[in-house]
Amino acid sequence: MNVQESFDKFIKDSKRVLKVSRKPDAKEYRELAKVVSIGVLIIGVIGFVIVLLGSLIGI
């Protein structure tokens, strides 16, 4: 598969994805925002604990 064929396949696949995708409704958007917020909070807490343990150990 050469570069032109790869590019054409990428364009074809991208068009197909855009055809089946849709804009989320308000309820779905709120649920997604909650999940993302919880994930960011968990990662922040884990990072804070690691930095706190590192400072207590003296690294």
Results as ranks from 00 to 15, higher is better:
residue 43 I to H: 03
residue 44 G to T: 06
residue 52 L to W: 11
residue 13 D to W: 02
residue 43 I to Q: 08
residue 22 R to F: 03
residue 2 N to P: 04
residue 53 L to S: 06
residue 16 R to Q: 15
residue 50 I to P: 03
residue 44 G to C: 05
residue 51 V to H: 06
residue 43 I to W: 06
residue 53 L to M: 09
residue 28 E to A: 08
residue 39 G to W: 00
residue 1 M to E: 11
residue 19 K to N: 12
residue 45 V to F: 01
residue 45 V to L: 11
residue 3 V to R: 08
residue 29 Y to W: 07
residue 21 S to I: 00
residue 24 P to Y: 00
residue 23 K to Q: 12
residue 32 L to D: 11
residue 6 S to M: 15
residue 29 Y to M: 13
residue 27 K to H: 06
residue 25 D to V: 00
residue 1 M to Y: 08
residue 8 D to V: 02
residue 51 V to E: 11
residue 37 S to V: 05
residue 18 L to S: 15
residue 6 S to Y: 13
residue 2 N to F: 00
residue 48 F to R: 01
residue 14 S to A: 13
residue 11 I to R: 13
residue 5 E to R: 06
residue 6 S to H: 12
residue 18 L to C: 12
residue 26 A to E: 15
residue 21 S to E: 09
residue 6 S to P: 04
residue 29 Y to I: 05
residue 37 S to D: 13
residue 1 M to S: 14
residue 45 V to N: 04
residue 11 I to Q: 14
residue 6 S to C: 07
residue 48 F to Q: 05
residue 5 E to P: 04
residue 59 I to G: 07
residue 17 V to Y: 08
residue 14 S to G: 10
residue 18 L to A: 15
residue 37 S to T: 13
residue 56 L to A: 04
residue 57 I to H: 03
residue 24 P to A: 01
residue 41 L to I: 10
residue 9 K to D: 11
residue 4 Q to P: 01
residue 52 L to V: 06
residue 18 L to H: 10
residue 3 V to Y: 11
residue 50 I to K: 02
residue 42 I to Q: 07
residue 31 E to F: 00
residue 55 S to R: 14
residue 41 L to G: 15
residue 4 Q to C: 02
residue 48 F to C: 04
residue 20 V to L: 13
residue 24 P to G: 01
residue 7 F to H: 13
residue 26 A to S: 14
